[in-house]
Amino acid sequence: MSIRVVVADDQELVRSGFTMILEAQPDIEVVAEAGDGAEAVAAVCRHTPDVLLLDIRMPVMDGLEAARRVCARSSCKVVMLTTFDLDEYVYDALYAGASGFLLKDVRRDDLVHAVRVVAGGDSLLAPTITRRLVADIVRRRREEAATGATPDRLDALTAREVEILRMLARGLSNAEIATTLFVSEHTVKTHVSNVLSKLGLRDRVQAVICAYETGLVAPGAPL
């Protein structure tokens, strides 16, 4: 079964380039392209894709607002596209529910890998830059005192689930967690699913943010 993708970028050459790369893969199908945020939201509603590649800066409706609407209304995974590795909008995009982000100069293989990873329910947490962004998100939110998050949120978790959440925040994959805990990867997936469900989180990215917000993992601490 193919991974269904919508590519949204206001630059036609960028959009076409990503589409060509993805369409060359036997397991990926680009079902639509969009030139602005409003078109992207409409395309998701019309085609129900698995993944939306979404440029942050676009006309009519910017990528951030489009991400909020898509994440609130569907199970489509959103990957933000940005020209700058520290684009301020990335912070809010992750809070809106995006599963990660890619630089527009991403390598062909990394683009394909990212789509497959996100479609499989994982997130783009491995790159150092993403981990730094997550830490910066929490630091900024705490300074603004805008989150209202407290450690009490973790009371619903078992000791093992808290341990799993801590490992997620350190950027470990399911396979790496399984090896560390001497359990099967299926068991880890079950624990991760339970963590997301109990905390009311959309995906692993938001789980990592929660770990920082609640103080389970301290910003700037070794990962």
Rank of each mutant, 00 (worst) to 15 (best):
V5D: 09
Q11L: 13
Q11A: 13
L13C: 07
V14F: 02
E23R: 14
A24L: 11
Q25W: 01
P26V: 05
I28C: 04
V30S: 01
E33Q: 15
D36G: 02
E39F: 06
E39G: 10
A40D: 10
R46Q: 13
R46V: 09
P49N: 13
V51C: 10
L53I: 03
L54Y: 02
D55M: 04
I56R: 04
R57P: 00
M58P: 08
P59R: 11
D62P: 11
R69H: 09
C71S: 13
C71I: 09
C71H: 02
A72C: 08
S74H: 12
C76F: 08
C76D: 08
V78C: 00
V78I: 06
T82R: 03
D85G: 07
L86E: 14
D87C: 03
Y89D: 11
V90F: 05
D92F: 05
D92K: 12
F101H: 14
L102V: 05
V106L: 06
D109G: 00
D109V: 08
D109K: 03
V112T: 11
H113E: 11
A114C: 05
A114G: 07
R116C: 03
R116M: 06
G121C: 01
S123Q: 05
L125V: 09
A126E: 06
T128W: 11
T130C: 09
T130F: 06
R131V: 12
R132L: 14
I137C: 15
I137W: 12
R140Y: 08
R140H: 12
R141L: 08
R142W: 09
R142Q: 15
A146Q: 12
T147N: 14
T147F: 07
A149S: 07
D152R: 14
R153M: 06
A156E: 09
A156L: 10
L157F: 02
T158F: 12
A159W: 13
V162D: 09
V162T: 13
L165S: 06
L168Q: 05
A169Y: 00
A169I: 12
G171V: 13
L172T: 05
N174C: 14
N174D: 15
N174Y: 13
I177E: 04
A178D: 09
T179L: 05
L181E: 10
T187S: 15
V195H: 04
V195C: 13
S197M: 03
L201D: 00
I209E: 12
E213L: 07
T214E: 00
T214P: 02
A218S: 14
P219A: 05
L223Q: 08
